[in-house]
């Protein structure tokens, strides 16, 4: 058996095909999920892809959180369903309060697209177990609202409980506090990540293939592959 990993398409989602391709390359079965449906179709995990849901004309992710499917998703996530939010997906997870903090305009005020070095700080989550703690990987980053912020108490909590999943190395591309590139919830099943591992799964098109680990991690977790 293999795992069924849902990929949600909101109006304005852009990296949904890429996320599905990454799921497939990792050996799982991608299942397209439509924002307006109310069912998760028995998927074993869900990816919220990058993009500009609803154009992000309001705060990024602020409208997507009200999509009919999100009610189901939030409940399922509380019950332990593994969820990975990438870029806009991370923004939606914060807006949905599945993850703390918020993503604001890059301090440079520019959209930034580059190959970015990250350090995996927590290799115990559902989405990072294929990595070693402290492992450095290079994956693309591309965003204009990628500056992670939270109040000091939340930051201290995230740091002390090991919930910073990945951190920027060499360059902090968007001014995120504590160089935070990704975080998880307390249970470790919900991970939000600003960089794009789904764009680093093939040598032909990515800066590396080191993003594949996020998708093989979930397969490991679900089927022990």
């Amino acid at each position: 058996m293999t795992a069924r990993v849902g990929v949600i398409t909101f109006p304005g989602s852009l990296d949904d095909r890429d996320a599905a391709r990454a799921v497939r390359l990792a050996g799982a079965e991608p299942v397209p999920l439509w924002h307006a449906e109310a069912e998760l179709n028995d998927v074993d995990a869900v990816v919220l892809p990058g993009g500009f849901s609803y154009g992000d004309y309001l705060r990024a992710g602020a409208i997507a959180r009200f999509a009919p499917l999100m009610d189901r998703l939030v409940a399922a996530a509380h019950d332990g369903l593994p969820v990975l939010g990438i870029c806009n997906g991370f923004q939606v997870l914060c807006e949905s309060h599945l993850l703390p903090g918020a993503l604001t305009r890059n301090t440079s005020l520019h959209f930034v697209c580059r190959a970015q070095r990250l350090r995996i700080e927590n290799a115990a989550t559902d989405w990072t177990r294929a990595y070693e703690e402290g492992q450095e990987i290079v994956v693309p980053i591309k965003n204009i609202d990628g500056c992670y912020i939270a109040d000091q108490e939340t930051l201290d909590e995230l740091e002390s409980s090991g919930r910073v999943v990945a951190r920027y190395v060499d360059v902090n591309p968007n001014g995120s506090l504590n160089d935070i590139a990704g975080i998880c919830n307390e249970a470790g099943n919900v991970v939000g990540l600003m960089p794009h591992p789904e764009h680093a799964v093939e040598a032909l098109t990515g800066p590396s293939t080191e993003g594949l680990g996020f998708f093989s991690s979930i397969l490991q977790r679900l089927v022990g592959a």
Binding site: D15, G50, V112, E198, H199
Partner: peptide, 14 residues
């Protein structure tokens, strides 16, 4: 200039 453009989306940029 070019770092302000997404070159990765769609996953087919060689």
């Amino acid at each position: 200039v070019t770092s302000q453009y997404d070159k990765y989306v769609l996953g087919n940029t060689v």
